[in-house]
Design a binder for these strands. Structure first.
Lengths: 223, 223
DNA sequence: CTTGAAAGTGAACGATATTCAAGGTTGACT
DNA sequence: AGTCAACCTTGAATATCGTTCACTTTCAAG
């Protein structure tokens, strides 16, 4: 069963089409869902925008919920990658963690896709937990060893943090809170991680490096 | 337009029936929704359990979502009242706030109704924000004046906190986190409010007074 | 007792996530 | 090249609710 020659230097046409279809679906879903909201988006519209039959979607995702999760995970993954890249030159885990919080908060309040997506706050927080979690938990653990953060369960801390982030972003989009207060939110979340308010404020007010551009998912002008 | 005699010492039979109907609906919805989850609960089942026609529900609530909100607000209101009562003898706002956090966390992890309800984490956090918020924000503001908490926007702090609470409770119900870690969650949320970890740990480990019994909403054995 | 307005009813409607039977496509194997 | 089983794609059909509405019942004021 071990072919010497061509195990899969070229994956077959099918595999390639599947990869393209899956990507097209996620992009289509991202477009429609961030325009109308996850619930209001219909599978038919998504399928048509991805140029495939309605039933085909179910070869790629078990349900509409699954598709939404995939969209969110894509967004979060991209964000995690960009933050990691931007922070590559920093040494202090707490500093990088602060940068991560600020970036997520800013992006959420800026990227128009988030507005509608946040309607399903549970899914958003989950995706954030899973895709940004590895980076965040790592920083929390290292920061704790370095005496910067309080000791304690990084998973617990990150669970609290993701949901809190989603909550404050929701409040901003609803106009219950101004975007000006996002830095204060970051400070409080750093305190939650075990920093003193002074340390937290210091980290939050430092200049921030530019983020690499986001991997474009949604087409600017369809058609 | 001022009737001397009987403005409404006895509200009419209609008004009384409406009050009963509304309560019956909320109880029925609470039962069904906390058994099957908000989404899986059907309006028909709720209406039947409240012993009324399907259409009648819409005389009381504009939509299923509205009904769910009413259920959650009822639960949160009761919780706020019970905490407020139990804490009546305490003086330190930070102490009462700690008690509030612990109580909400414990209740959420104990009361079986929460399990399914948490599926709609956004609505739960909203209801908690609105019904427990007045108490919590008051404590935060007083505690800040007393030098116990950090200065800052209590609304912001409470928004972060409600969503974080919901998040950690979800994690507990999913088995991603043990209920043992709820006190640590409380400590971290107190740090978020501006306490030092030492102060927070002290408050969390103090003995807690008994809560008054919860106002029974769901009938133990229907039929 | 009459009566008009408000409350109650449940069958019918519309929307839509999901399924499925039928018909293509692919590529390994002769 | 030809065959074929496995897998993909399709879009019409299905099942399931949330919500509406034309109609009936109830109530209390006159």
């Amino acid at each position: 069963m071990n072919d010497e020659k061509a195990v899969s230097p070229k994956e077959g046409r099918v595999a390639r089409r599947q990869r393209r279809n899956r990507a097209a679906l996620i992009r289509a879903a991202s477009d429609v869902m961030s325009l109308k909201g996850i619930d209001a988006a219909t599978m038919l519209e998504i399928a048509e925008r991805a140029d495939m039959g309605a039933g085909t979607v179910y070869n790629y995702f078990r349900s509409k919920e699954d598709l939404a999760v995939a969209v969110l995970e894509e967004i979060m993954q991209d964000l995690a990658l960009r933050v990691e890249t931007a922070a590559r030159s920093f040494r202090d885990p707490a500093h990088i963690y602060a940068l991560t919080l600020l970036t997520v908060l800013d992006t959420a309040a800026t990227d128009p896709r988030w507005k509608q997506l946040l309607g399903r706050s549970g899914i958003v927080a989950d995706a954030m937990y899973r895709r940004i979690g590895p980076l965040a938990k790592d920083l929390l653990a290292n920061g704790a060893s370095a005496g910067r953060f309080a000791k304690g369960d990084p998973s617990l801390c990150w669970t609290l943090t993701t949901h809190a982030i989603v909550g404050i972003c929701l409040a901003v989009y609803r106009g219950e809170t101004s975007a000006e207060s996002l830095p204060e939110a970051a400070i409080r979340l750093l305190c939650l991680a075990g920093l003193t308010p002074e340390e937290a404020r210091d980290l939050v007010t430092r200049p921030r490096p530019d983020l690499p551009p986001m991997r474009v998912l949604s087409e600017a002008h369809p058609g």
